[in-house]
């Protein structure tokens, strides 16, 4: 698997480049000690720390996405064998996709893709 060695080297090169950039920043910065500042929302202080359990109202979409995304992973190996396996590969895959999309359409009708 020598295809991956260049990736590792590349990661090293990028890391070195970023380190050099931060170094250059230290050399040029008008002040090196980091400034400690409050969060900005227009100038006034917030009531609490922002880190909190964030309420996402598109939560149902994440569930649908997970189901569909897992399925996508099958499609990657599938593309390599389509003509080898023949018509059954295509029929099976698109039946599967069709069933999944029927579920998405149902979720859509139930309003899962809107949240406001």
């Amino acid at each position: 698997m020598d295809g991956w060695q260049p990736m590792l080297v590349l990661l090293g090169v990028v890391g070195a480049g970023l380190a050099a950039l931060y170094g250059l920043g230290l050399w040029l910065a008008a002040a090196r000690t980091p400034l400690e500042a409050g969060p900005f929302a227009g100038g006034l202080k917030p009531g609490e720390h922002a880190v909190s359990r964030f309420h996402v109202r598109w939560y149902p979409v994440t569930m649908i996405f997970l189901a569909f995304d897992m399925e996508m992973l099958f499609m990657y190996p599938w593309v390599k064998v389509v003509s080898e396996v023949g018509t059954t590969a295509v029929v099976e895959m698109f039946l599967f996709l069709g069933i999944l999309f029927a579920a998405v359409a149902y979720a859509w009708r139930e309003g899962a893709l809107r949240w406001t």
Partner: peptide, 19 residues
Amino acid sequence: DDRDELRLDRLHVPIGPGL
């Protein structure tokens, strides 16, 4: 409570006047 009566974290954030 939120509008669906779920009990969720609530932040108080004044926005403006510097936006």
